[in-house]
């Protein structure tokens, strides 16, 4: 059976590209506006649109159950803000994060912020297999700074920035695979395969 992905809709932002990209990779996608819908998922995608506090507000009713699911191994992909909310908190907002990843989200220390555009990701993770060009699309002012060993990919931008995370069966990307053309599509196809094996 095709993988079924439950994708959170926080009420704002472009979800068309990520939905279509996942469908192109063979997944069935259900967009969830009531976050309780995530609790039945075999695979969760937390998309990368919006601001830290507003996103957490939407996830508030299910935050504990959601973290339990991730801890027990439900495959999940958090993109950009969808990854950042997995940390304990952020310099961008006041709300406590989900705390699935230990550490905080901090402001980029760079001459030009946001870090906007295409930059290369150094990673040997299985999700990078077959990726032709290491360039992925970024658009962010903050990045995750973990206190545990979860970094599986980094990017050079005025220093080394952690940009790909993995813990349990959850992946977090600082880049936007759904906006990263052919490289992003290969990455997402690899994620769908991974989730099919681990569901």
């Amino acid at each position: 059976m095709a993988l079924k992905v439950h994708m959170a809709d926080y009420g704002v932002g472009n979800l068309h590209s990520i939905r279509k990209a996942l469908e192109n990779c063979g997944a069935k996608v259900e967009v969830v506006t009531d976050m309780r819908g995530l609790l039945e998922a075999e695979c969760i995608v937390l998309p990368g649109v919006g601001a830290f506090d507003k996103t957490l507000e939407r996830l508030q009713p299910v935050r504990e159950q959601l973290v339990d699911m991730l801890r027990s191994g439900t495959p999940c992909l958090g993109i950009c803000i969808g990854m950042q909310i997995l940390f304990e908190g952020s310099e961008e907002g006041k709300e406590p994060g989900l705390g699935f990843l230990s550490g905080r989200v901090v402001r980029l220390k760079a001459e030009r912020v946001p870090h906007m555009g295409w930059n290369s990701v150094q990673s040997n993770d299985r999700l990078m297999r077959g990726v032709q060009s290491p360039y992925f699309y970024f658009a962010h002012s903050f990045h995750g700074s973990p206190r545990e060993d979860v970094v599986v990919g980094t990017t050079d931008y005025f220093g080394r920035v952690p940009t790909l995370f993995k813990k349990s069966n959850t992946y977090g990307t600082q880049f936007h695979p759904e906006k990263s053309s052919a490289s992003g599509m290969t990455f997402l196809r690899n994620f769908v395969r991974f989730a099919e094996e681990e569901r």
């Binding site: 704002v12 979800l15 279509k20 759904e178 053309s181």
Partner: peptide, 26 residues
Amino acid sequence: AERLFVPLTVGGGIRTREEMRNALNA
């Protein structure tokens, strides 16, 4: 958006927060 997998910027005549939200949601 359903067939483009690089970023898309939309401009021209957007005047309110609501119109911006509509463009992002589209």
